[in-house]
Amino acid sequence: MEAINISYRAMIILYALITVPVLICFFLKLGNVKQILIAVLRMTVQLAAMGLYLDFLFRFNNVWVNFGWVILMIAIANITVNRNSGLRTARMFLTVMLGLTISAFFVIVIFIFIAIRPEPFYDARYLIPISGMVIGNCMRANTIALERFYASIKKNEREFLTYLLMGATLREAALPYIRESVKSALAPHLATLATLGLVSLPGMMTGQILGGSTPIVAIKYQIGIMIAIFTAITVTTVLNLLLSLKVAFNEYSILKRDIFRN
């Protein structure tokens, strides 16, 4: 059983729905009508492109293309993480790439290659969407963690120096800030885990049920992906923060100013 297709005429009706928020924003003079229209246009173009490349990937289903695509997703996530956390991509690219790749592949290997075991193991139908979900969540968590960590050390330079003067190594001095940053990055995911099925609707599960899976199968996938995502974001935030110490601090363990965009 497959999901019922939505006709193009029905899509026009769905697009017409957007006039409701547009009119509300216009009458409330929120000044964001142009922004909304651009966002909807971008979403349409991005998803259309996604539909095309997923269609290509699923048909082609080549091991190199599939893994190359995963690496490309990680690279884009990497650039987004640095840009949104106010750090210079040129300085942080390699360490963030390493942290994201290790953590993403760690859970992909366990979730897809060991738990699901598709045939072939690189099957794009499993590898691409599941990797995308894992990498997307890692991207958001790393943005929070790196932004909090470096903003906090920059703001509390004297405190950080005090730890060094008490004999702390760079890693020991950074530890209180690492703890806080990882906690902040995990908090939204913990809240989601705790309320899944009560408040938030499990996206993967909904998609699978619409696609014809039984609720039991859909629930197993949902549990699997939630654990995989939570594991990946925990590993990736800690790993990225630790790896970034090497490039973000000078030989005297003092924060370099040129890692920041501004």
Binding site: R158, E159, T162, Y163, M166, G167, A168, T169, E172, P176
Partner: peptide
């Protein structure tokens, strides 16, 4: 900067580092 919530912990903080 004392770096801990309790005064005793602040006093003993350096002794949690490998160096001490």
């Amino acid at each position: 900067v004392l770096g801990a919530e309790k005064t005793r912990d602040a006093l003993l903080l350096p002794f949690s580092y490998r160096a001490h």
